[in-house]
Computed example of a mutant assay.
Amino acid sequence: MTDLDLYPKTKAVPAGTLRAGHVVVESHGYPAVVVRVAYGAQTTRWVTVYCRYIWQGSQELAWILGGSKLLNSTPVDRAV
């Protein structure tokens, strides 16, 4: 097994720009892979980001970043 980088360099990006495969840092030392992004209807400004921690297996359930929908403009720390 390779060593996991728990503290990647990050850049704040709007939640609406996240895509599957991006790595986000939920909190200090907790990087997670975006597995799915659900967008609201065209008239809404919401996005739901589903993630798994980098140490979780693909069979484990994804969880929602921030615990609920996020505004498209909400800043999220993404690994660069």
Rank of each mutant, 00 (worst) to 15 (best):
A15L: 08
L4W: 07
S58F: 05
G21N: 00
Y7T: 10
W63N: 07
G16Y: 01
T48K: 10
W63M: 11
A32W: 02
L71Q: 13
G40P: 00
T10D: 01
I64A: 11
Q42Y: 13
Y7P: 04
Y30V: 13
Q42H: 12
T74S: 10
V76I: 15
G16Q: 01
S68G: 15
I54F: 01
Y30F: 14
V25Y: 05
Q42P: 10
S27W: 13
P31F: 04
R19M: 10
L71T: 13
L70P: 02
V37E: 01
C51S: 06
G67M: 05
V80A: 00
L71A: 13
T43W: 15
A41G: 15
W55K: 03
S73H: 08
A38I: 15
L4S: 09
D5M: 08
P75G: 01
A79Q: 01
L61N: 14
T2Y: 12
V49C: 09
V33E: 10
I54Q: 02
Q42M: 12
V25D: 06
P75Q: 02
T17W: 04
S73G: 05
G16A: 05
K11V: 08
E26G: 11
A32E: 01
V34T: 03
K9A: 15
R52Q: 08
A38T: 15
G29M: 00
T43M: 11
V76Y: 02
K9F: 12
T17H: 05
A62M: 09
A62W: 08
V49F: 07
V47A: 02
K69F: 13
V24H: 01
L70Y: 00
D5N: 10
Q56H: 12
W46G: 11
G40L: 07
G67S: 02
Y7D: 10
S58L: 09
D77W: 08
G67R: 04
D5R: 03
A32L: 04
A32C: 08
L70F: 07
W55V: 09
Q59S: 15
D5P: 03
S58Q: 08
R52H: 07
G57K: 14
V25K: 01
V33H: 06
V24A: 06
V23W: 02
A20E: 09
E26C: 14
V34L: 07
G40D: 02
A32I: 00
P14K: 06
Y50I: 09
